[in-house]
């Protein structure tokens, strides 16, 4: 049972290591690093590799941003099966809508309560 914690930690950590290397070694900007990881997750799911990773590492694979790319492809494929080509467009935000909505909502709440500050 407790082994899932260890695999989650290692797999999640490795995804973050890749991000850090893209940042430090490949000298990508934060935005480029973010996009690349999303695209990587999306492609991995298209190849049917991301779901097995989630089964293996749990939150270690669902928490990093690669999971967002996975959800985009996942939703698109699922809806495409039901509704054909148009399903690709409607499906992308089917699974990801909760994440996007909560980002907007919690961002809004935080912006109301807190005033942005610098380093002091």
């Amino acid at each position: 049972m407790s082994s899932i914690y260890i695999t989650a930690f290692i797999v999640g950590g490795l995804i973050c290591v890749i991000g850090q290397l893209l940042f430090d070694v490949a000298k990508l900007t934060p935005a480029h690093t973010l996009c690349l990881l999303v695209v990587a997750g999306s492609i991995l799911d298209g190849l049917g590799l991301y779901e097995p990773l989630i089964d293996f590492a749990g939150a270690g694979a669902t928490i990093p941003i690669t999971s967002f790319g996975n959800s985009l492809t996942h939703g698109a494929l699922a809806e495409a099966e039901k509704h054909g080509l148009i399903g690709v467009l409607t499906g992308m935000f089917e699974v990801t809508s909760s994440g996007i909505s909560s980002a907007i909502l919690f961002g809004f709440i935080a912006a109301i309560i807190f005033k942005p500050k610098g380093n002091v």
Binding site: F23, D24, P30, P116, K117, G118, N119
Partner: peptide, 11 residues
């Protein structure tokens, strides 16, 4: 670079 509030890492 980036807005300070963005919290981007620096080398």
């Amino acid at each position: 670079r980036y807005p300070v509030e963005y919290g981007s890492q620096k080398p």
